[in-house]
């Protein structure tokens, strides 16, 4: 036997990150206190305008009986729309755990700079917004357009977590969590690209997001992937990537905002450079999934340039998840089928 390694000292590493995320504490919630989070929305100066407060998580405002109060807008009163049953169900959930973010290391004057080519996305990037453990709202601050099925699935997951019995999901069992959750983590990733493909290599989850720019050279796999099949094209300086053909339904975030296996993610990715050698990536993700939502809706994320994060920490989820002395599902319970 060579199992004398002090396993207890391993706790808190890779699996703990996944489990903590799953339990809703959030990866950052398990971390020691650090520098204060970035400003509203975590957006760099000169970039996008701050998101509405509700867009970065937290409790949803209570919906008054009879719908939102009318608000004068240049003399125009918003029509009062009663909340749908789906909205009422979502509004009744306990608020998500607040996410935090830690700034990456300072770039310093000698840090490598990004290519001046707006279509060259290569380099090391780091999500600089607070992790949204439950996305809830779109990039305009509006409630995500859950239909009743979507609201039921999310409510089931949130209530199960709040009851101390969170459901098994991909990340907790060392499976790829899907493009949106993978990118949302506040862990660095590198981008490598050619004329034919763009590859995202993440520190966490053995994560890869492979984008084919030429379907003829990278056709869909024989068997569907957890991360789906992603095809991209350039629209000016914006890389537009459509991801579909998922092996299974995804959780879009820690609390389980759902995407069905038939859903699609459309990502519009551009490098924003304000001329200060501190570019950032803007990724607008549109979620298109009639199974769970009444219409497509979009969220925006930013990722700052940080070559000082190129040397990753090791991720080895399997060492602990497969340990026969621990629960193979990290203490989570199977989610009932619809």
């Amino acid at each position: 036997m060579r199992t004398e390694f002090p396993r207890s000292t391993l706790k808190g590493l890779a699996v703990a990150v996944a489990a903590a995320l799953t339990l809703g504490a959030g990866a950052a919630g398990a971390q020691p206190a650090g520098p204060p989070p970035l400003g509203a929305g975590g957006l760099p100066s000169g970039g996008l305008p701050p998101l509405p407060g509700g867009a970065s998580g937290g409790a949803l405002p209570q919906l008054p009986a009879g719908g939102p109060a009318g608000a004068p807008l240049g003399g125009f009163a918003m029509p009062q729309v009663p909340p749908t049953p789906a909205e009422q169900l979502i509004a009744g959930l306990a608020p998500p755990s607040p996410g935090v973010v830690f700034p990456g290391p300072a770039l310093g004057p000698d840090a490598p700079t990004s290519s001046a080519d707006p279509r060259d996305l290569q380099g090391t990037w780091y999500h600089n917004q607070k992790l949204e453990t439950r996305i809830q709202r779109d990039m305009y601050g509006e409630l995500a357009p859950y239909n009743m099925e979507g609201a039921k699935v999310l409510a089931r997951r949130v209530k199960s977590k709040d009851a101390g019995k969170p459901f098994v999901n991909a990340s907790a069992i060392c499976r790829p969590p899907g493009p949106l959750w993978q990118r949302d983590l506040n862990m660095p990733f590198q981008i490598f690209q050619s004329n034919d493909a763009v590859e995202f290599v993440f520190e966490e989850y053995h994560g890869r997001w492979r984008v084919a720019l030429d379907m003829a050279k990278a056709p869909p796999p024989a068997q569907k992937d957890y991360m789906g099949y992603s095809v991209g094209h350039w629209d000016g300086a914006t890389l537009v990537v459509e991801t579909s053909d998922f092996k299974q339904a995804l959780w879009l975030d820690v609390d389980g905002t759902p995407l069905s296996a038939n859903g699609k993610l459309i990502q519009r990715i551009r490098k924003v450079d304000n001329g200060d050698s501190k570019p950032f990536l803007e990724v607008i993700t549109t979620i298109d999934d009639p199974t769970y939502y009444t219409r497509p809706w979009s969220v925006v994320r930013t990722f700052v340039w940080n070559p000082r994060m190129t040397y990753f920490d090791e991720y080895n989820c399997e060492e602990q998840v497969g340990d026969p002395s621990t629960d193979p599902d990290a203490g989570l319970v199977p989610e009932p089928k619809d």
Binding site: L13, Q31, R308, D313, E314
Partner: peptide, 19 residues
């Protein structure tokens, strides 16, 4: 590289690893 490794916020490098 000449780059300093990023800060080890959750103590991942406190224990030996596969690589």
């Amino acid at each position: 590289s000449k780059l300093e490794p990023k800060e080890d916020r959750i103590g991942r490098r406190l224990v030996p690893s596969a690589t």
